Amino acid sequence: MSTFVLIPGMCHGGWCFDELAEQLRSRGHRAYPLTLTGIAERSHLLGGGVNLDTHIQDVTGVLTAENITEAILVGHSYGGMVITGAADRAPAERVRGLVYLDAVVPGDGDSCWSLVTEQERRWYVDVVDSGYATRPLPFFDPRATAHPLASLLQPLRLTGDLAHVRRREYVYAAGWDGESPFTPVYERLRHDPSWTTHAVDSAHNLMRDAPQDLLRILLDAA
C-alpha cells in the first residue's frame, strides 16, 4: 500500500482528483486530495497573506496531522511548486516520491511567474477586484475559483537538494492546443537518468482527459 497526496493546479480544489482517488483507494492505496488555502471550499480564507509558503504548509501540515510517511506527492501544473517545497521542508521520512503532472519543476529562487510563458503571465494579472487573486479561465470547470496571486509571484526557497526523494516522475501532456509552457522542462528531464518521464496524448487536464493513463502511471510509481 502506498499513500498519495494529490495537489491541484491553479483555481481547482481537491475535487479534481475525486475519480483518481477513488480508483487508487479501490486498489488498496491511501489517497488524500487536498484543496489549498484560498481556493474552492477554502476560498473564504483568501487574502493578501495567502502565498506559496501557505500552500506548502497546507501539505506539510497534512503529512504531520495524518502521520503520513513514505508519501508520494502528486502535483498538477502549479502544484509542482507546492510538492517541491513540501518535499524540501518535510522530514525526509515523510516523502519518498514526487510525480509532476504537466507541471512546473522549480529550483531554488524560481517562481511560477518566472517559469511560464508570457501568455500565462497575461492571465495571472487578470485579477479580481480585491487584487488578491487571478480569475479562473472561462473554459475551466464551473467549480473553479480565483487563485491567490501571491502564490504565483513568490520565489521558492529550497534548503536542500531533495536527494532523499527516491523516485521522481514527470507526466507530460502532449496534446495542448497550441504551445505548451511545459515542453522545455519535459525535454530537459527526459534526458536526465534520475527522472522517469511519460508523454501522454492529452490536453493539460490529465485527470479529466487521460484518467486511465494517469492511473497506470501512479500505480507503477507505487
Rank of each mutant, 00 (worst) to 15 (best):
S2V: 11
V5M: 08
M10A: 15
G13C: 09
G14D: 05
W15I: 09
C16K: 05
L20E: 08
A21R: 14
R27N: 04
A31T: 10
L34M: 14
T35G: 04
A40F: 11
E41M: 05
R42G: 03
S43T: 10
S43N: 11
H44E: 04
G48V: 03
G49L: 10
V50D: 00
D53F: 00
I56D: 00
V59D: 01
V62P: 06
I68A: 06
I68E: 06
V74T: 11
S77M: 13
Y78S: 04
G79M: 07
G80A: 02
I83E: 01
R94T: 07
V95Q: 12
R96C: 10
D102N: 14
V104Q: 14
V104N: 15
V105S: 10
G109V: 00
W113R: 09
W113S: 05
V116T: 13
R121P: 11
R121K: 12
D129M: 05
D129R: 10
R135M: 10
P136Q: 07
L137F: 09
F139C: 08
A144M: 02
T145P: 01
A150R: 04
S151H: 03
S151A: 14
Q154C: 00
P155Q: 09
L156G: 06
R157F: 02
R157I: 03
R157T: 11
L158Q: 07
G160Q: 04
D161V: 10
L162P: 12
R166N: 11
E169S: 15
A173D: 00
A174W: 07
D177G: 03
E179V: 10
P181E: 02
R188C: 05
H191K: 09
P193I: 02
P193Y: 04
P193S: 04
S194C: 03
V200R: 11
S202G: 00
S202E: 02
H204L: 06
N205Y: 13
M207Y: 01
M207F: 01
R208Q: 14
R208P: 00
A210C: 06
P211F: 09
L218Q: 12
A222S: 08
